[in-house]
Amino acid sequence: MKHLKILILIIFCFACKPYQNGKSDICLYEAGIPSVLTLQSNSFSTSDYGIIRGQILNRLDSLPINSAIIDLTEIGIFTDDNGKFSIDLAPDEYDIEFKALGFNSLSKRFDLRNKEIINLKVYLGVSDSWSDFSTDNPRKLKKVIRQQNKERKAKYGN
Score class of each variant (00 low, 15 high):
I26R: 07
K99R: 07
S127C: 13
G32F: 14
K140D: 06
I96Q: 01
N158F: 06
C27N: 10
F103G: 02
I77A: 06
E97N: 05
G76L: 06
I56A: 00
K150T: 00
I145D: 00
D88L: 11
K140C: 00
V36D: 08
D81H: 11
F133N: 02
S105Q: 05
F133K: 07
K153Y: 08
K143W: 01
Y156M: 00
Q55C: 04
I77K: 07
K150W: 06
C13E: 15
W130V: 12
H3Y: 15
F85C: 04
N104I: 03
N114R: 08
I96W: 03
K108P: 04
S62Y: 07
M1E: 11
N104V: 01
T73M: 09
G83S: 10
D80H: 10
C27K: 14
C13R: 15
E97W: 00
L101I: 12
S67M: 03
S41H: 12
S41I: 08
L106F: 01
V126Q: 10
E30W: 15
L106E: 00
N82Y: 10
L9V: 13
I87G: 05
L63G: 06
F110P: 04
W130S: 04
C13H: 15
K142D: 01
D95N: 08
L9D: 06
F44S: 01
L141S: 06
F78Y: 14
T79G: 03
D136C: 13
I33W: 13
K143T: 02
N114V: 01
N149G: 05
S107K: 04
L4T: 12
G22L: 12
N58D: 09
P91T: 05
E30G: 13
A90W: 13
P91V: 00
S41Q: 12
C27S: 11
N66Y: 14
E93C: 05
S62H: 07
I75V: 12
F85A: 09
I33Q: 10
I96L: 00
D111H: 04
I118W: 03
K143N: 02
A15E: 12
P138I: 06
R146T: 07
H3M: 15
F14L: 10
F133C: 06
K84F: 00
N119M: 09
N21F: 12
V36S: 11
D81P: 14
D92A: 08
K153S: 02
I52L: 06
T38K: 15
F110I: 09
Y123I: 07
G125E: 10
Y19R: 15
N158K: 05
L112D: 02
N137F: 05
A90V: 07
R59N: 04
F78L: 12
L9N: 10
